[in-house]
Amino acid sequence: MKKVFAREEYCLGCKLCEVYCVTSHSRSKDVVKAHKSEEITPAVIIESGENLSFALQCRHCDDAPCVRACITGAMQKDPETGIVKYDENKCVGCWTCIMTCPYGAVKRDEYNRNIISKCDLCSETGEPACAANCPNNALVYKEQEEEGE
């Protein structure tokens, strides 16, 4: 399946991927409105250290620990697309998925709701907004086989 890969040698740490992630998951799909009048937690996590940064998002594991750990069935792997999907209506906010994710790619909601935030590869729009809008091609959306992670 196609996933988003980070190329840390070109990551600027500008965090535009966060901005476009929020926009892509908003109702309005407008950068300004999405940030000013909606409460959305970005699903990308920007790791940065001294002159090193990269954007991390859910790896959509084949045998996803978060899916196995989820006590309500809110986290499911879509057998067709391979996307690990999350249904916030079923989530009770137990945070087990956060504890089991080996990549640390699941986040708590930043607005104190009992839900989590994770990457769904922008399944609503079809193309991950973080990769589409990365100014330096430091995020690429492609098949996994081409190159190792």
Partner: peptide, 13 residues
Amino acid sequence: YDRCINCQVCERQ
């Protein structure tokens, strides 16, 4: 300021 979303991209760049 009607458009600025405080994302701080300008600051980082």
